[in-house]
């Protein structure tokens, strides 16, 4: 009888089925997360297991380090720059891909490619595209008569940042477009028709009716875009390796260089902790959106 009783206890079954997932998340995400913060206050190295409290030593060291300052600035510039580009392009692309036209399925397949390809493989392809000798971009610009000198895409600090922004925008665009499309599809048709009946043209409809309604969805796209861009290691690591002369590091690549390659776990952790402000902003915004959606659903 008791076995049957347990088999019908929803609370017991619920806890048992949830437990492995919860355990995995707590032990292998939660604990390491706090360990990352703890390590940032220590002088731990990869070589030995012993470590001592270092207070704000690591933070003092990196904040006074011009390479870190530059990496922090680059992280902000790349994230803001690429996401600004993505918002504009994704809104435009969604307007195109909501229409029906011949070959749309194929066009959509091509549009989605950058999201499907592994970051590291996309980055190596772009490294080849930006090659100092064989860059096909340079050839095309030269053949079109637009370029007279030469562009060393990955050899010049400013141009390298532009290249990084282009690649980040390129790889996030499909994701953002598809999310905005999903948002467009969920706008009630009556509202759009009412606007048309009232004589609103395409632009008026876009800016005064659709975009305000799309705001929550565009926000979701941007939030994920921010997380993907600010925390990405692969693009910069492969494209420039932080060079030339440490000018294009972002927080993840510098954390990797110091913490893993340089074996200074404390400093690596401290650099990575500076990703937290990006993530906290995103998490708070998401929670607000989710609450609004909950209220709206009632």
């Amino acid at each position: 009888m008791t076995r049957r009783a347990v088999a019908d206890r929803e609370d017991v079954l619920g806890v048992l089925m949830l437990a492995p997932s919860l355990a995995y998340v707590i032990l292998l995400v939660g604990v390491p997360f706090f360990l990352a913060i703890l390590l940032s206050f220590s002088n731990a190295t990869a070589g030995s297991l012993r470590f001592e409290w270092a207070g704000f030593g690591n933070y003092g060291a990196i904040l006074g380090d011009p390479i870190f300052q530059r990496a922090l600035r680059n992280s902000v510039v790349v994230t803001v720059g690429s996401q600004a580009l993505v918002v504009v392009l994704a809104t435009a692309a969604a307007q195109v891909f909501r229409a029906t036209f011949r070959g749309k399925r194929f066009a959509r397949f091509i549009l989605l490619l950058p999201w499907a390809v592994p970051v590291s493989l996309a980055a190596i392809a772009w490294t080849w595209i930006f090659d100092s000798t064989f860059s096909v971009i340079n050839w095309t610009l030269k053949a079109a008569g637009l370029l007279h000198g030469w562009l060393y895409w990955l050899g010049d600090p400013a141009l390298a940042l532009v290249a990084i922004i282009i690649v980040q925008a390129w790889r996030i665009l499909p994701f953002a477009t598809v999310i905005v499309l999903a948002g467009l599809a969920s706008i009630p048709q009556e509202i759009v028709e009412a606007a048309i009946v009232d004589g609103a043209g395409f632009w008026r409809r876009l800016f005064q009716v659709e975009l305000p309604l799309l705001l929550p969805v565009v926000t979701v796209a941007v939030l994920f875009g921010v997380v993907y861009t600010a925390t990405d290691l692969g693009v910069v690591y492969i494209l420039t390796g932080g060079g030339p002369a440490n000018t294009t590091h972002v927080l993840p690549t510098l954390a990797f260089q110091r913490g893993i390659l340089g074996a200074d776990l404390g400093q690596g952790a401290a650099i990575a902790v500076f990703l937290l402000p990006f993530l906290i902003v995103v998490a708070v915004a998401m929670l607000r959106l989710a609450r609004r959606a909950e209220v709206g659903a009632r």
Binding site: V25, V29, P32, F33, L35, L39, T231, F256, I260, A269
Partner: peptide, 22 residues
């Protein structure tokens, strides 16, 4: 649980490198 998906590998690789070695 979903929010932990937002915690990126680039924040966790330092403690994980220690854990994996252990």
């Amino acid at each position: 649980i979903f929010f932990t998906y937002l915690i990126p590998p680039t924040l966790l690789f330092v403690p994980f490198s220690r854990l994996v070695a252990l």
